[in-house]
């Protein structure tokens, strides 16, 4: 049976992993290569790395860093940030990524999704969608690290990217990002309902229950988070254990024990 995936999302600003709060404030955490090495051995199912400064500064992806990070990443590695041409995709994959995540450029030139999928296969092309409620209370897609409005509705945009050839959607709620209030389940549900490609939910996880909600109530095929994995000890193991307890099929490594500990309501070991 196909397992639901647990994915740490590493937010890279320059060459440091940062904590992001509603795409507005960023606090430094540490080196990505260290985080990746830990995560790989802590049973995560995939790792997403988003370089949030690349598009904003008009910079290309940092291939040297990607190659360094990929060295010890023996689970699938998705890389996003600054990818706007087919040769960017080729370079990032050659540096050691398995998939790319396209966000701003997908909105600016939607045919880029199609070209990417044709050349590299749709399974290689993840379209990242950042959405929040706009001033009139409707969901809207934002690009350029949440700075630029697009007038696009997330569910409609999701359908469009699917028809253009995207293999997967990484859906992030800007409003919930860094708030620990849980996923925006309405948003996730709306998008998972609209498409038949897998959807990865992201943004807002503060407790282990939130992961369960993302799958059960949101309908996501994978649950991603950033900060909780950086700040809660043994977080990935506890998250897997919580998902397992809720009856959700997850991949459990034989190297890790998933029982015999208790966790508090915040998901910490007690």
């Amino acid at each position: 049976m196909l397992k639901y995936r647990l994915i740490p999302c590493l937010i890279l600003k320059d060459d440091l992993i940062v904590q992001s709060i509603q795409f507005k404030r960023y606090l430094p955490i540490g080196k990505a290569e260290v985080a990746i090495e830990f995560f790989v051995n802590w049973d995560v199912d995939e790792i997403v790395l988003l370089d949030i400064n690349a598009s904003r500064k008009g910079r290309k992806p940092r291939l040297d860093l990607i190659a360094l990070y990929a060295e010890e990443c023996f689970v699938p590695f998705t890389v996003g940030g600054g990818i706007s041409t087919l040769s960017d995709i080729r370079n990032v994959i050659r540096a050691g990524a398995d998939k790319v995540s396209i966000n701003t450029e997908a909105v600016r030139s939607p045919h880029f999704i199609t070209e990417g999928a044709k050349t590299f296969g749709c399974q290689c092309i993840t379209v990242s969608i950042d959405a929040k409620k706009n001033s009139s209370g409707d969901y809207e897609v934002f690009v350029n690290s949440g700075k630029e409005s697009t007038g696009l509705h997330p569910a409609e945009w999701a359908q469009k990217v699917q028809s253009l050839g995207a293999g997967e959607i990484l859906l992030t709620s800007i409003d919930r990002d860094g708030t620990k209030q849980g996923y925006d389940l309405d948003l996730i549900h709306m998008v998972t309902d609209a498409v038949t490609i897998p959807v990865v939910a992201c943004g807002g996880v503060g407790t282990m229950d939130h992961f369960i909600q993302g799958i059960v109530d949101g309908g996501a095929q994978a649950v991603a988070a950033a900060n909780i994995f950086q700040y809660t000890e043994h977080s990935t193991i506890i998250a897997k254990s919580a998902l397992k307890k809720a009856g959700i099929p997850v991949r459990l490594s034989s190297q890790v024990k998933y029982e015999g500990f208790n966790i508090d309501e915040k998901g910490r070991l007690i």
Binding site: L2, K3, Y4, R5, Q123, G167, E168, I197, P198, R251
Partner: peptide, 10 residues
């Protein structure tokens, strides 16, 4: 069953 088939399977 969503396609692509992405993820860990037995």
């Amino acid at each position: 069953f969503r396609l692509p088939h992405i993820g860990w399977n037995n």
